[in-house]
């Protein structure tokens, strides 16, 4: 029995000694097999247990277990040390330069004119308007006559419009859509629409003029629409578009299709009305034209001006985009330089 005990202790010493010098996981595994495996040294010694007495067996069994536990503990400690080292190595090897640029998602831009138009459309949709559209090639009737601009009207100049025939032309304003809307409504109220779109006027192109440009007009008709409602609507629009602090100012003006008519200035968003280069030091930006729909226009649209009234307003999308983004030349909108377009990727603010 003493011989077994001593052999076990000798095994412990040998195993622990050998384990102390282990250098890699493979070697560790080999030693585990050598000492603790099914055919390992410990099993080999313990196989002699059968020859022991019933009293001796538990004693030697206990010693065997102790030796196993001692060897296992060292193996485990070694193993975990190896694993940690391996992990550290791996992390070191995987370290990258986080300052290199990433692979971005593609991001294109909506054209700035449509970006502005959509923003305006969204504001009016929020106020309960729908969007009406009409043809860009129009009849003289819808473009002029039905808007109280008969053929001999001085405000009408053949030279200012792109005619195709005597009766057909490129629309010079989006107002014909208002007339088409009125006719389509067949005398029903309320009418609450905005009409965005391209319009065309004979104009020599320069930094601030373009023969093709975009307008957005609005039309409201109802049983009791007042000029004060027009002011309220435009103020609401101005504050949603240009910020809560925006103010409006109406100046009497003239349009053949509205009476009374007004030019609308909005307090300069840049300087807040104190005067800067953008507003030419006036504190105000001229943005809109508006007025109460002329009774003749209502009549031609199929409404009785004694029963209903309405207001209309219109603005140039280019002008707002020029102001909003500080763009230097209106022609950029139509030459579509990718370096220009790429500047408008940001979300609508």
């Amino acid at each position: 029995m003493d011989g077994m005990k001593e052999r076990l202790e000798a095994l412990r010493t040998e195993a622990l000694g050998e384990l102390a010098t282990v250098a890699d996981p493979q070697q560790l595994n080999d030693l585990r097999v050598k000492y603790l495996g099914k055919k390992g040294a410990l099993t080999e010694i313990l196989r002699g247990m059968g020859a022991l007495s019933a009293e001796e067996r538990p004693v030697i069994g206990q010693v065997g277990n102790d030796v196993r536990a001692a060897i296992e503990a060292v193996i485990e400690a070694k193993q975990s040390a190896f694993q940690q080292a391996e992990t550290e190595n791996r992390l070191r090897a995987e370290t990258i330069d986080v300052t290199l640029p990433g692979s971005k998602l593609p991001a294109g831009a909506v054209h700035p004119l449509n970006k502005v138009a959509q923003e305006i459309e969204d504001i009016f949709i929020g106020l309960g308007y729908t969007i009406a559209e009409g043809p860009e090639v129009e009849t003289d009737y819808y473009n002029f006559e039905a808007l109280n601009l008969p053929k001999d009207h001085p405000a009408r100049d053949m030279q200012d419009s792109f005619y195709i025939t005597d009766e057909i032309l490129m629309r010079t304003q989006t107002s014909p859509v208002q007339v088409r809307t009125m006719k389509a409504m067949n005398g029903k109220t309320p009418v609450k629409v905005i009409c965005p779109g391209k319009v065309y006027r004979r104009d020599d192109d320069d930094a601030t003029h373009s023969f093709q440009f975009n307008q957005i007009e609005g039309l409201v008709i109802g049983p009791n629409i007042r000029m004060s409602d027009l002011k309220g609507t435009l103020l609401q629009f101005a504050q949603l578009m240009f910020g809560k602090q925006a103010q409006i100012r109406l100046r009497p003006s003239f349009f053949p299709f509205t009476e009374p008519s007004a030019e609308v200035d909005i307090s300069c968003a840049q300087c807040g009305g104190e005067g800067c280069r953008m507003c030419k030091h006036t504190g105000w930006l001229e943005i809109l034209g508006c007025g109460m729909v002329h009774p003749r226009v209502l009549e031609m649209g199929g409404y009785d001006p004694e029963q209903v009234s309405g207001f209309a307003f219109g603005m140039g999308v280019e002008r707002i985009a020029l102001l909003k983004y500080g763009i230097d030349d209106i022609r950029h909108f139509y030459t579509n330089d990718a370096r220009f377009l790429g500047q408008f990727v940001r979300m609508q603010g």
């Binding site: 792109f162 093709q212 990718a338 377009l341």
Partner: peptide
């Protein structure tokens, strides 16, 4: 969808 896919929108002259 098209701008999300990286395309820029252009507007050209009708003439």
């Amino acid at each position: 969808r098209l701008t999300d896919a990286g395309l820029h929108e252009v507007i050209s002259y009708s003439f």
